[in-house]
Amino acid sequence: MTYKNYPMVSRVVFGRGSFNQLDEILAPKRKGRNAPFIFYVDDVFKGNHWLTSRISLSYNDKIIYIPTNEEPKTSQIDQLVEDIILEYSELPSGIIGIGGGIVMDVAKAVSLMLTNKGQSKDYQGWDLIKNPAIYHVGIPTISGTGAEVSRTTILTGPVRKLGINSDHTPFDQVILDPELTKDVPTNQWFYTGMDCFVHCVESLNGTYLNAFSQSYGEKAFELCQEIFLEDHLSKEESQDKLMMASWHGGMSIAYSQVGVAHAMSYGLGYLLGVKHGIGNCIVFDHLEDYYPEGVAMFKKMKEKHGIELPQGICADLTDAQFNTMIDVALSLEPLWENAIGKNWKTKITRDVLLKLYKKM
């Protein structure tokens, strides 16, 4: 039996105000005046000097705002990489992603594609990246996706929505500053937090479960229950704990895998452009047959926070559109194997998925 030799984030700093240490963390990594740092910043912070005034730019450093109304596309990554190659004579000293899962995935993907030839769509899958990425840093401003710790970067390509899963994907440095999450709107906080909760449920109920993933998954699950079902936490404590839940949830799936909700959510994302967190919620709401206890708890959380999920998003789809979503979902074989077991193909038929999608 071979065991996964799993790459971790090699450096992490945690604490309120730790974002202020960005300069001193980056300084030793600068390769010279022609090798800039590129900062990809969630465009929600455009004009928000509270955050951007703390990024000090030297030489040719640049802030680029990344729109987050839709998930990253392979064509977008290729364009960002080309922009850097055309503008600078040397490779950047580093890529820094400041934002939610979308922005962190963009930073990871660009840092990989600067050192690997061709188009990013050619690397969607498992272990296709050959060369190490350039130095890259992740700074989450919302908690739950686990993107800050994962070995994947989720991209929508011409034919599928699938991550670049590789040992070179994880960040070299992560800064976890819970203060950066202070202005997240309630709905967004809930959907992204539920991404973490669903990670835990799928990991803890999966056939890939082992003591490593279980220890992280149980901690994240416990934190999610405390944050979303109990009333004793201050806003600051809740922010701190959700940031830790996100990290632990990400670590849990790193050494196992996600399951049914994620596989089906990729279908919604690919066809309808539904964002990942809310997509997971829409799917998970209908998965009592697979995760009865987790779904019951999710419904309680939803009620407690007054969250109304979109209904009927698949109501007017054609057979061809349903088939596209089903194709995307079924292509994620490791997720189904984790959720159902080696014989998953006998249980997860196109008809089973069609019935589920029609409920959404």
Rank of each mutant, 00 (worst) to 15 (best):
G32S: 09
G32P: 00
G32Y: 00
G32K: 09
G32C: 00
G32V: 03
G32I: 09
R33D: 08
R33A: 06
R33G: 03
R33I: 08
N34I: 12
A35Q: 11
A35E: 02
P36S: 06
P36L: 08
F37K: 03
F37T: 00
F37R: 05
F37G: 01
F37A: 04
I38L: 12
I38K: 06
I38T: 06
I38M: 10
I38E: 03
I38A: 09
F39A: 00
F39P: 06
F39Q: 04
F39C: 08
F39Y: 15
F39W: 08
F39L: 07
Y40N: 02
Y40C: 08
Y40Q: 01
Y40W: 10
Y40H: 02
V41S: 02
D42F: 02
D42P: 09
D43M: 04
D43K: 04
D43L: 02
V44C: 07
V44H: 02
V44M: 06
F45V: 07
F45E: 10
K46M: 15
K46W: 13
K46D: 10
G47A: 12
G47Y: 14
N48P: 00
N48D: 15
H49A: 13
H49R: 06
H49P: 09
H49E: 15
W50L: 14
W50D: 11
L51K: 06
L51R: 03
L51Y: 13
L51T: 10
T52D: 10
T52N: 07
T52W: 13
T52H: 06
T52R: 00
S53V: 11
S53N: 14
S53T: 07
S53H: 09
S53P: 01
R54E: 15
R54C: 02
R54W: 01
R54S: 13
I55Q: 11
I55L: 13
I55S: 04
I55M: 08
S56M: 06
S56T: 15
L57E: 05
L57V: 12
L57R: 10
S58A: 11
S58M: 08
S58F: 09
S58G: 06
Y59S: 14
Y59M: 06
Y59G: 12
N60F: 13
N60Y: 14
N60W: 12
N60D: 14
D61V: 05
D61W: 11
D61M: 12
D61H: 07
D61K: 11
K62N: 06
K62A: 03
K62T: 01
K62H: 07
I63D: 00
I63Q: 05
I63G: 03
I63E: 06
I64G: 00
I64S: 03
I64C: 04
I64A: 02
I64Y: 01
I64P: 00
Y65P: 00
